[in-house]
């Protein structure tokens, strides 16, 4: 399975991942090569085999909703790239 440049750009858009021209070129070649190695799985008969999402077969782990103190606002906001008082400043979402 060969990935075209258009496909690479489509996946990059889905991932919100900017790529340089050079990276697009390289990615198309390298991803195609990796995907080729996945074809080995077509040899495995998985009829009737359920999928495993994680090894311990836990489902819907619940806990009591207990009110506990949160992290201090100042400490959490300390990592924000753009801060405005007690808010994180973001780019305009709706124009």
């Amino acid at each position: 399975m060969k990935l075209s440049k258009e496909q690479v750009l489509h996946i990059a858009r889905l991932s919100k991942l900017g790529l340089t021209e050079n990276e697009v070129e390289k990615m198309s070649e390298q991803l195609s090569n990796i995907l080729e190695n996945f074809e080995i799985l077509n040899k495995v008969d998985t009829t009737g085999i359920p999928p495993t999402a994680q090894p311990n077969a836990l489902t819907n782990v619940l806990k009591d909703d207990v009110v506990k103190p949160s992290l201090p606002q100042d400490e959490v906001l300390a990592n924000a790239p753009q801060r405005d008082g007690d808010y994180i400043r973001v780019k305009v979402v709706l124009e």
Binding site: I11, S15, G18
Partner: peptide, 27 residues
């Protein structure tokens, strides 16, 4: 532009192997 900021952040912030795996996984 919000989307451009996000894409550029990830273009510059991530190295080649991380990008490769994000692409592979998204695909």
């Amino acid at each position: 532009n919000m989307w451009e900021a996000m894409e550029k952040t990830r273009e510059i912030g991530f190295g080649p192997e991380v990008k490769r795996r994000i692409m592979l996984g998204t695909y």
